[in-house]
């Protein structure tokens, strides 16, 4: 960052004009700084993310297709994928219902304690997955848990079974839809909703015909983010599931177990599948967002 004139150079090129020469013609030095920063960014991202991610796909197919086929015909693996799908589906459904309700309340209404609620709904993002798991173990413990003991008396066992996995997954993915919807709801405003109401539409009609179409892209990418997070959850699920092989093992837990059992080909194959899902999610969100932006500009 030595050269005077570096920022002017930046300013000029970013609006796609030809590079202006500084007062003392220091274009060379300015270009050098810019290139240096570009390469620092590229090398860092490549070494930390791009190259390692590529290697996972490479390692998956290093021994040919046979191990991949074996992995995805293994009943234990299929079972873990099914459990992940169930947990993720519940998480998306519950978080969509909760997210839409809370976002509407936070944006469209005033009530005491609103700022507190607004702050608290972000809490799950800063809590360690292990602490999430621990918190669920503590309340649903069948011996002395606040909810667990009465539920056990009534014959329900939450821990070490699917309900606990659903709870853990829903907990960690909770804020994502709200974070997407709140800004979108603020941006669309209330004019159309009020117009519809004043013309005699009921709340459910207004919500279905006006609000949902206006926020559908924001809602959709909130759902994609929530889905990606739910599929990938590991720590919280590990604590609450008991990791019972073939029963409470999700796909991510399966990766860990296979890796430590020296069944690395299968671990790589499942990882590749999960990586593909998350990359598809990123690209989907980016396309949806571009679409939403172009609409709001037109």
């Amino acid at each position: 960052m030595c050269c005077s004139g570096g920022w002017r150079d930046v300013a000029e090129t970013s609006v796609a004009r030809p590079i202006a020469r500084g007062p003392r013609g220091q274009v060379g030095a300015q270009g050098a700084t810019k290139h240096l920063l570009r390469w620092v960014a590229i090398v860092y991202v490549a070494l930390l993310v791009a190259w390692p991610v590529t290697l996972v796909f490479w390692n998956t197919f290093a021994e040919g297709l046979q191990p991949v086929i074996e992995t995805f015909t293994d009943p234990l693996v299929l079972n873990s994928l099914r459990l992940t799908a169930i947990a993720a589906a519940w998480s998306v459904v519950l978080n969509t219902a909760f997210g839409v309700t809370v976002s509407m309340l936070l944006v469209r209404y005033e009530f005491p304690g609103k700022r507190l609620l607004n702050a608290l709904v972000d809490l799950p993002l800063s809590v360690s997955p292990i602490v999430v798991g621990l918190s669920i173990v503590l309340v649903y413990s069948t011996t002395n848990g606040w909810f667990g003991a009465p539920l056990a008396n009534a014959g329900f066992h939450v821990l070490f079974s699917t309900p606990a996995i659903v709870l853990a997954t829903t907990f960690v993915a909770m804020p994502l839809i709200i974070r997407e919807l709140v800004p979108v709801l603020q941006e669309v405003g209330v004019d159309q909703e009020q117009a519809a109401r004043s013309l005699g539409a009921s709340f459910p009609q207004t919500f279905r015909r006006i609000t949902i179409p206006a926020i559908r892209w924001g809602l959709l990418y909130g759902i994609v983010l929530c889905l990606a997070r739910s599929i990938g959850e590991f720590g919280a699920v590990k604590v609450v599931s008991g990791n019972l092989i073939g029963q409470t093992q999700t796909a991510t837990l399966m990766v860990e177990q296979l890796y430590f059992d020296f069944d690395q080909e299968k671990a790589f194959a499942i990882s590749s599948l999960l990586a593909v899902i998350s990359i598809i999610a990123i690209i989907t969100v980016s396309l949806l967002r571009a679409r939403a932006e172009s609409r709001s500009h037109s």
């Binding site: 590991f234 990766v255 990882s271 998350s278």
Partner: peptide
Amino acid sequence: ALPTIVAGLV
């Protein structure tokens, strides 16, 4: 978006 366990493997 990548599951954390996969990040470790990566």
